[in-house]
Design a protein around this nucleic acid. Structure first.
Lengths: 172, 172
DNA sequence: AATAACCTACCTACTGATAGGTAATTTATA
DNA sequence: TATAAATTACCTATCAGTAGGTAGGTTATT
């Protein structure tokens, strides 16, 4: 793992616990064993790091999702696949969705970070709209918004109350 | 309006835009025309301010909600009343739910602040469970979690994408 | 030799917090 | 009722710590 990748990984963990202001160049540098000035070599500003983090997170998320049509072809409901990915984030990582947390504090983010968070939700809504369309939903756009809203909201509340059963109840 | 109330109001605005770390004693002091050291007279620590803010926010929210039974008696669906309160927060204030944002960053909050955010959701779930029970829901607890999750999630996404129509689509 | 990936050393700005002081008001006592 | 004590609501000045960021030098790789 390169130092740059390690920096992004360390930042992701911190952001998913407390948001954009929950990491500093010094902390990241200490964690991976370099100096804070060296972090600026990989990321000129904190906003650059935040934007790249959200961009990679989005790409990885969408890549893992695969194509809704492929899931359908395998006899699986693509919405269940999507729900399972959210469940993993909460149950395995025991952390919030990176872009869920960043989205909540969207108004205070640097522009380039906010733009990447927007991209996450645009891509997610597009995927879910397609999935619901395949499922024969009458209003796939609306169904997509409802799906991601319910999951993000349930994730936040389960995280707050420190009890996964709230999330499980919300999605079943 | 007392200075203390003005401090809480100023803090609320900032927290609802960017979370717990989005306000400082100096900023609040400047805004209401006192010195930052004087803020410590009203709130010994930042955590004390944050906790009192979340506590008051919760009390005010629950007070405005009234009793589910009273709404039902007036021929109104109490869930619609609840949904309308969330809509107002987003449309009128153009800001996130205070406890929604704090809940997302729950893991990085001081204990006494986190406890108050928990209290917000416990009280909301109790109100919604009672409302759904009155409505004859078979599983009022589950319906309550689904209601608040959908609203908090839709609020966050609409705020991120800076477009209220996402929220409107999610709740109708 | 050139470039990548660090380093030391530093800066300015800001953070929450504390010490100690003051004027005005309120409460308790003689 | 007059005086003393206490409280309220601020102030100035300062603290140690941390923030993101920069200039310029060093080391390692190709």
């Amino acid at each position: 793992m390169t130092k740059k990748a390690a920096l992004l990984k360390a930042a992701e963990n911190k952001v998913r616990l407390g948001g954009y202001s929950n990491f500093s160049f010094r902390e990241l540098a200490n964690e991976i064993g370099i100096k804070s000035a060296s972090v600026h070599y990989h990321f000129p500003t904190k906003a650059d790091l935040g934007a790249e983090l959200a961009h990679q997170y989005t790409d990885a998320f969408i890549a893992v999702l695969g194509e809704p049509e492929a899931h359908k072809a395998n006899g699986k409901n693509p919405i269940d696949i999507y729900t399972q990915l959210f469940t993993n984030a909460l149950v395995i990582d025991k952390k919030m969705c990176l872009c869920g947390l960043l989205g909540a504090q969207s108004d205070s983010l640097p522009n380039k970070v906010r733009d990447e968070v927007k991209r996450f939700f645009i891509k997610n809504l597009a995927w879910l709209t397609q999935a619901h369309k395949i499922n024969g939903e009458l209003n796939p756009e609306r169904a997509a918004i409802k799906t991601v809203s319910l999951l993000e909201g349930a994730m936040m509340i389960s995280n707050t109350l420190d009890d996964i059963s709230y999330f499980e109840q919300a999605i079943f």
